[in-house]
Design a binder for these strands. Structure first.
Lengths: 140, 140
DNA sequence: TATAAAACCTACTAACTCGGTAGGATAAAA
DNA sequence: TTTTATCCTACCGAGTTAGTAGGTTTTATA
């Protein structure tokens, strides 16, 4: 399951895609609009900024804004940034790989199935972008 | 990611599929063979028993054994039993569904993508069984 | 240049999960 | 009736999750 943090990240990003034209948006505005604890959201937006997806501006008239074309930000990128690995096992993770000491990856049946699962996931999560979760419209 | 518990469960089940002909297998034997803490494995096997996948026999000559045809136990069943939901969001989970209070499921873009991910996962995890992770051979 | 507005940063918390341990109760076979 | 093995209850340290509190820095503007 995705953490609350990742879920909030998607909600906030979706909101910022909607308001992309309007310049910086206040944390407090997003928090209120999406029903997220403001302080918690603060930390999330900061992570998204450090991850190169958002920009920010301090002081009056400040806030957060997208610095990427929504079509250029796959959902996988957000998930990895906030929650880490997408794969079900470390030994089949592309970005967080760790060798499996209890099995031989070439012949391990579990490894092979989990690699298949990973590929099926990535096929979707690498191709669907912020623009896609936007298009169908996120209400509330 | 799958928990260690679920990973150990798969290793243990794989071992029991291998030794299906030999009658009850000792926890200690599986633990030693697979390099799992015996007491921790004890709890896992008990869960698998309560979940209707394993049977057990107490006393001398006792141990754990499969009570299902390996072909009849999808990997999804083991994951759900040990780790819970397979879906990435509660609002797209088939077995652990929870309504999403922040979005309308019909039009929420995130919901729709995550449902797609769930389907892709289940297509694999509901069709691959204990027999499948066995066939290719799990070494060590 | 003072002031207010906003992001930024550090530290803390309660509750929960994860991986594991300890020790005894129960059941069954010899 | 002793041994063997599962079964059960309780506990533990470390880490994560989902926040909260409060102050620091930067920036626009009056």
């Amino acid at each position: 399951m995705l953490s609350k943090k990742a879920q909030y990240a998607f909600h906030a990003l979706s909101y910022l895609v909607e308001r992309a034209e309007e310049g910086p948006v206040l944390i407090s505005k997003i928090a209120e609009e999406k029903g997220i604890s403001q302080k918690f959201l603060e930390a999330i937006l900061l992570e998204l900024k450090r991850g190169g997806i958002l920009g920010s501006k301090k002081g009056k008239g400040g806030g957060y804004y997208l610095i990427k074309d929504p079509n250029e930000v796959p959902l996988a990128r957000v998930i990895r940034l906030i929650d880490g690995p997408i794969a079900l096992l470390p030994c089949v993770s592309l970005n967080y790989y760790e060798r499996c000491d209890t099995c031989d990856e070439g012949t391990c049946g579990l490894h092979n199935v989990m690699a298949e699962v990973r590929d099926a996931n990535l096929k979707i999560l690498e191709n669907k972008t912020l623009a896609d979760i936007q298009r169908s419209g996120l209400s509330a």
